[in-house]
Nucleic acid binder design. Structure first.
Lengths: 230, 230
DNA sequence: CGCGAGCTTGACGTTGTTCAACTAGAGTGG
DNA sequence: CCACTCTAGTTGAACAACGTCAAGCTCGCG
C-alpha cells in the first residue's frame, strides 16, 4: 500500500498536473489547506447533494463518479485516477455536489479546501487556465457519454464502455478491474441483465475475452464498428 | 429587428454579464476583436467538429445547441439566449466544436476571438472566476439533462423539457416558441411521434394547453410529480 | 390550386426491462 | 466440517415501452 502521508505538496510525486503552474510558495499554501485521506473500497468520498468544501485529488486507487436519481438508478459518469483531481462543478455555483464519488479500490486522496483553490485561480493566471482546461475536458467527456447513451443501442453503448475502460481508465489491454457487471451496466445506461447478455454475445463472437476480473479486447476494430453503427 | 451594430462594447446594453468584470480599457480591447453577425432562423452558427476560433455572444434571438451522431440523431443540450454567451469546451482542449449551434429565431451575435478571451482569463482574475462559474453552470445543466434522459421514461422526460423551457429558456408561462415537435423530441431524447403522443396525454389530463406555437403549463405541480416519478 | 412542411394517428415490431429462478463461490458461525 | 447466508453472475420467459412505418391531415404559401 502507499504512504499515508506525503511529506509536503512541494515534494509530492503524486500531485495533479494542474499544480505545476504553482510556485513553491503557492504549493506551500496548498500544503497548509489539505488533509490526506484513506478510503477503503466501497467507501463514499462525497455524496450527491451534500455541501462541498474540498477538492479531491486522488493519489492512489480509483474513484467512481456517478449520479443517482430518486428511483435508485445510477449512472457512472467517469472515474478519477491517481494524479488526477475531481472537478466539482458546484464549487462555483451552489456549493453542492452534483454527483457522488466512491472509492472502487482502496484509495488515498488529498482534500484541499475549495476556498484555497478558488483563491489560487484568482492569483495565478496559469493555474486558472489549467483549471479551465480540466473542466473543459470533463465537459467534453460528458458530451461524448450523453451522445453514446442517447444515440446508440445496447451493443454500441457496451462497446463504448469497454473501449473507454481500456484506453482511458486502465490504459491497458487486457485490463484487470474490480468493477462488477452492475458497474458496467451503470456506465452504459442499461440493466445488469442486458450488460450480461451483450457481453455474452461479444464473447461468443470472439470480440472480447473475460477471465475472472480480467477483460481483454480481442477485436477492437470490430468493437469500434459496433460503436459507430450504434 | 435589432440594431446590426452596437457602437462599442463599452456602451453595449447587451453584453453578457461575464464582461462586468472587465475595465473600460479591457472592454475596448474586446471591442477590437469582435465581429457583429446576424443570422436568419435556421442558419448554422457553428457546426460540431469544425475548428473554433471565436466565442459567440448572443445579443438577440435564440440559439439552439445540439450534438449529432452518425445515424442522424440529434440531441439538444441547451439554448443560448440574449445577453448570454456560448461556452465552447473545445477552445481549451482541441480547438474543435463539440456541438453545433443553430439560430432558431433571427439572431444577432458578436463573435469574439477565442485568443482574446483566453488572454483576458489570464490577465483578469475576476473574469477568470466568472468564466469558470459559467462553465460550471453548464456542466451542471448537462448533468441534469443526462440524469433526466437516462433515468426517466417518456412522460418524465417531457415534463422536464416543458418545465425547462418555461422556467429556464423563455422565463414565462405561457410561452411562445417556434420549436417544432421534433425539437421537443430532440430535447427529451425521444422520437417526434412519442413526443406528440405524450403531449396529447398531457393535454387530455389538463396539465398543459397548446395553442399554435404557444404552450401553457396549467398544472405544474402535477408535471413536477410526473418528473419526479420518472 | 397544388405543394411542402409540420402534425397526428394507428398498427406493428423490436428492444430492452422486469421478474423469477438457479448457480457458484466466499465468508461465517456452530 | 457442514449448513447457512450473501453477493455476484447467469439464464429464460413474459411483458412493457418505445421506435418504425405508413397513411392521412392541416395550413400557409407560391
Amino acid at each position: 500500500m502507499s504512504k499515508l502521508l506525503e511529506s509536503s505538496c512541494l515534494h509530492c510525486k503524486k500531485r495533479s498536473d494542474i499544480f505545476e503552474a504553482l510556485s513553491d510558495e503557492e504549493l506551500d499554501r496548498v500544503d497548509m489547506c489539505r488533509v490526506n485521506m484513506r478510503y477503503h473500497a466501497g467507501e463514499i468520498i462525497f455524496k450527491q447533494g451534500s455541501p462541498c468544501y474540498d477538492f479531491v485529488c486522488v493519489t492512489s486507487g480509483l474513484v467512481k463518479l456517478y449520479i443517482e436519481s430518486e428511483n435508485d438508478h445510477r449512472l457512472i459518469i467517469g472515474f478519477a485516477k491517481p494524479i488526477d483531481y475531481i472537478f466539482v462543478p458546484g464549487a462555483y455555483v451552489d456549493k453542492r455536489h452534483h454527483f457522488s464519488a466512491v472509492a472502487c479500490e482502496d484509495t488515498t486522496a488529498c482534500l484541499v479546501e475549495a476556498d484555497m483553490i478558488q483563491n489560487m485561480v484568482k492569483t495565478n493566471p496559469n493555474f486558472a487556465s489549467s483549471f479551465i482546461r480540466k473542466i473543459s475536458a470533463q465537459s467534453i467527456a460528458l458530451l461524448e457519454q450523453i451522445s453514446s447513451i442517447t444515440h446508440k443501442q445496447i451493443p454500441g453503448r457496451m462497446a463504448d464502455t469497454l473501449i473507454y475502460l481500456s484506453t482511458k481508465v486502465y490504459n491497458s489491454n487486457p485490463f484487470t478491474t474490480n468493477l462488477i457487471r452492475q458497474d458496467l451496466a451503470d456506465l452504459s445506461g442499461m440493466t445488469k441483465e442486458s450488460a450480461i447478455r451483450v457481453l455474452k454475445t461479444f464473447k461468443e463472437d470472439d470480440l472480447i475475452r473475460i477471465d475472472g476480473n480480467q477483460i481483454e479486447i480481442i477485436n477492437q476494430p470490430m468493437l469500434e464498428t459496433i460503436s459507430r453503427n450504434g
